Amino acid sequence: MSRTPSSRTATIAKIAVIPVALIASGLVVSQASYSAYSASTSNPTSNWSSGTVQLSDDDSNAALFSASNLKPGATGTKCIVVTSSGSLASTVKLYAASVATTKALASSITLNVTQGSGGSFGSCTGFTPAATNPSVFSGTLESFGTTATSFATGLGSWAPTGTATESRTYQVSYTLAANAPDSTQGGTASVALTWEAQNS
């Protein structure tokens, strides 16, 4: 069967279109691999760290008092320096970690705690009471041990700012009442003083 010139032309035209289409698709693929624009921004690595609340004292693990053979009217005074070195503002309270007594001796011992500056553990040489709110406690040892038993019921008005190391001296005095009853003879009394700081 013979084809007319026009049909041969049409066939040739169709065949010629195929390579052109393949070439065109190749160009699209080639261009796609080079046509991705991009941009980004980033923030430097984020970091977190917690602050600190730290308290220490200059007692070298020694008891403030170890008084024995007391008689009515006996008295004594010593000092202890408490230091705040934490980075957070805090409130410091004094309370009795434990109080023990026999023959009700604690009810005949008066305890006075005054806050200020100067002095050192065991010695109050150079101690100066604070200009405002110097008295921390004044009452019987029994009262101290039953009313100030935790931070929530603790005593004192010291509030370190956390911006620098701060110290506070506490002067502690005791007196066995001059009229202590005979029933307190041979009695004992003890207390563990605790200073606790909590961040504001």
Rank of each mutant, 00 (worst) to 15 (best):
S117P: 03
A89W: 02
V28R: 03
A178E: 09
T45D: 09
S66W: 05
L94S: 02
T52F: 08
S123Q: 07
L55I: 12
Y95A: 03
A21K: 00
C124K: 03
T41D: 08
A32W: 05
T161Y: 03
I109W: 01
S157F: 11
T75A: 14
G139E: 07
I80N: 02
A32D: 00
T128I: 14
T147M: 06
M1I: 13
V113M: 10
V113P: 01
A189E: 04
T128P: 05
Q31M: 08
C124D: 03
A89E: 14
A192C: 00
A159Y: 02
A152K: 13
S150M: 12
W48V: 13
A197K: 02
S190G: 14
G139Y: 08
P129F: 01
S120Q: 14
A178K: 12
I18D: 04
L176P: 00
P134A: 06
A159I: 12
L193E: 05
T175M: 02
A32H: 01
T102R: 08
N133V: 06
S68V: 13
T128L: 10
V53W: 00
Y170Q: 02
A152N: 15
G186Q: 09
S66E: 12
E196V: 12
T52N: 11
I109M: 06
G118I: 06
S120A: 14
S135N: 15
N199H: 12
V191I: 13
S87E: 07
K78E: 08
S138L: 06
A100D: 14
T114L: 04
S123M: 05
T188Y: 03
